[in-house]
């Protein structure tokens, strides 16, 4: 009874916050609603007896992904008003398609029925005696091992892609060069200047530190990825 009640509470909050994610005007609010959605989903997992998944959802999605989103949204200066312009322009077409698709899906889903064994499965989601985590582990590392490996490759490719597309060669940016830092002495950078008492900036002028730039910036041009012209 309490479980049912809790299910409906969490489910309702989840749906509401999910719709708020797409409809909130302020993107920061959207992300916050997204976090709320994740929390509720985790709660639903808990109710279903999948405590491992619930924890993972909180740790990974809330702890990492959503926070990352939040950072990105806050750091990027996205003009949402401009984005919405396009949204409004395509609204009529989009809405029509959406409605038609929705109607069709309703027609389709009308024929849906639970599998006969689903009712019993629903209340005993775990095989008795086998730990939840162990079961997931078996699925991941034995049954779907191939997919696990392949997903690893997908991530690897994503990583390579991110590096290839964004990482600039050395020379484009400033990096820490520890050996150079250590080799540096005060004499290289500091100049002792005798300043007459009372003489202001007007007399001395602004003194710049000596800049030792061993690598010419021009080297960057060789490695630029100009593409074809």
């Amino acid at each position: 009874m309490i479980a049912t009640l809790a299910f409906y509470v969490f489910a309702v909050i989840l749906l509401v916050s999910a719709s708020m994610v797409v409809s909130a005007r302020n993107p920061v609010h959207s992300v916050l609603f997204l976090i709320l959605t994740f929390f509720n989903a985790a709660a639903l997992f808990l109710l279903a007896g999948a405590e491992f998944l619930a924890m993972i959802l909180v740790i990974v999605y809330v702890g990492a992904v959503a926070v990352l989103f939040l950072f990105v949204v806050m750091m990027l200066d996205v003009n949402f008003a401009q984005l919405r312009e396009g949204f409004q322009r395509y609204l009529p077409v989009g809405a029509t398609i959406g409605v038609v698709l929705l109607v069709e899906l309703f027609m389709v889903l009308g024929g849906w029925k639970f599998a006969p064994e689903a009712a019993s499965l629903r209340f005993a989601p775990v095989t008795p005696g086998v730990h939840n985590t162990a079961q997931l582990g078996r699925l991941l590392y034995t049954d779907y091992f191939l997919l696990f490996q392949a997903s690893g490759l997908v991530l690897l490719v994503a990583m390579i892609g991110a590096i290839v597309l964004t990482l600039r060669d050395k020379g484009d940016g400033r990096r820490q060069d520890i050996s150079r830092q250590l080799a540096r002495t005060a004499a290289d950078t500091l100049v002792m200047v005798d300043v007459a008492t009372g003489a202001g900036m007007k007399d001395v002028g602004i003194l710049r530190p000596k800049v030792a730039e061993p690598e010419p910036v021009a080297a960057a041009h060789d490695h630029g990825h100009g593409g074809h012209h």
Binding site: A150, S151, V154, V157, A158, G161, V164, G227, H228
Partner: peptide
């Protein structure tokens, strides 16, 4: 998964001349 592995690599390759 296979399709995604293929596609993801191609997305990157298509944008390879990033400049």
């Amino acid at each position: 998964v296979g399709t995604e592995l293929m596609s993801l690599a191609i997305y990157v390759l298509a944008a390879f001349a990033r400049d």
